[in-house]
Design a protein around this nucleic acid. Structure first.
Length: 274
DNA sequence: ACGAGCGCCTGTCGGC
DNA sequence: TGCCGACAGGCGCTCG
């Protein structure tokens, strides 16, 4: 599920808490419980258990689609991949069927990684760069200027959509927000990144920022059997709207495959040559 | 340098 | 009702 807006929303709840759950900031870790071996990417289970005990969570943020938790000595990174979610619940709650990993705190609460498809991963590292080092820039960071973005587009010769999905190019976009951004920018998902004009590049960057900001404001999208609380799914322009009228011109939205990903677009608004 | 294919996994949905 | 294939918000690997 989680792309930048969903991960941002989750990180915010972990950091700030909400009525039904406390903030995790300042909590001391008692122990870690691993329920699905492969969920732990690094280090080995006994090492993680040994290192993480008694550390305190001091800061929680997001980088790309990673949740970044600063502990007293180390950094805990979580990537939710396709179906992962983070739940904060009392330790007395029965362990849900899809819980893969849990952190127990000394106040009686726990953080649980719930992940039906088992793709999510957790790292405990002393240097976050080992894991995050190759990520591209943050799309919402103003340090990414229009000209820098244009230059990056031209540094590659790739189809636009697979390039936008590549986390080395830009960190945080996934299948939903890429389809949405390309429609807003009126660019075809298979357009060659090398032939995007400077004007189109400007529009693309502002479109990416607009859909991501809308997603964050709506607290992300809730899809399928997973409900996170966000409602951006009610505002999709093209994603999962195959056959429905394009919100701009009324032409039925088409679905195709680009870079092995389901892709939704308007055949009239999004011409390959703009 | 790039794209295709596939593996990793479980669950849902539509068609027959 | 049951079975079967397609599909799913991600990403890393191999292979041409």
């Amino acid at each position: 599920m989680p792309e930048l807006p969903e991960v941002e929303t989750i990180a915010r709840y972990l950091r700030e808490g909400k009525e039904s759950q406390p903030s995790l900031i300042g909590l001391k870790i008692q122990e870690a419980v691993l329920l699905w071996e492969k969920t732990l990417a690094f280090p080995s289970p006994p090492k993680l258990l040994d290192h993480i005990r008694h550390q305190i969570i001091t800061r929680i943020s997001r980088r790309g689609k990673f949740i970044h938790m600063q502990l007293t000595h180390d950094i805990l990174l979580v990537h939710l991949r396709m179906s992962g979610d983070l739940w904060v619940e009392p330790q007395t709650t029965p362990t849900a069927p899809h819980h893969r990993w849990m952190l127990h705190f000394d106040n009686g609460w726990r953080l649980a990684l719930n992940d039906p498809r088992k793709f999510a991963r957790v790292w405990l590292v002393s240097d976050a760069q080992c894991v995050l080092g190759k990520l591209g820039p943050e799309p919402l960071d103003e340090a990414l200027t229009e000209s820098a973005f244009y230059q990056r587009l031209h540094a590659y010769r790739r189809q636009l959509k697979p390039l936008l999905l590549d986390q080395h190019f830009l960190a945080g976009l996934g299948n939903i927000y890429t389809d949405e951004a390309l429609h807003l920018a009126k660019l075809h998902p298979m357009m060659d990144s090398h032939s995007v004009s400077e004007a189109q590049s400007k529009v693309l960057l502002s479109s990416i920022r607009q859909v991501l900001q809308e997603g964050v404001i709506r607290q992300g999208a809730s899809i399928d059997w997973v409900y996170r609380g966000g409602d951006f799914q009610n505002y999709f322009r093209v994603y999962q709207r195959t056959g429905e009228p394009c919100p701009v011109c009324g032409t039925p939205i088409e679905r195709t495959t680009v870079g092995q990903r389901g892709t939704h677009f308007c055949p009239i608004c999004q011409k390959k040559n703009g």
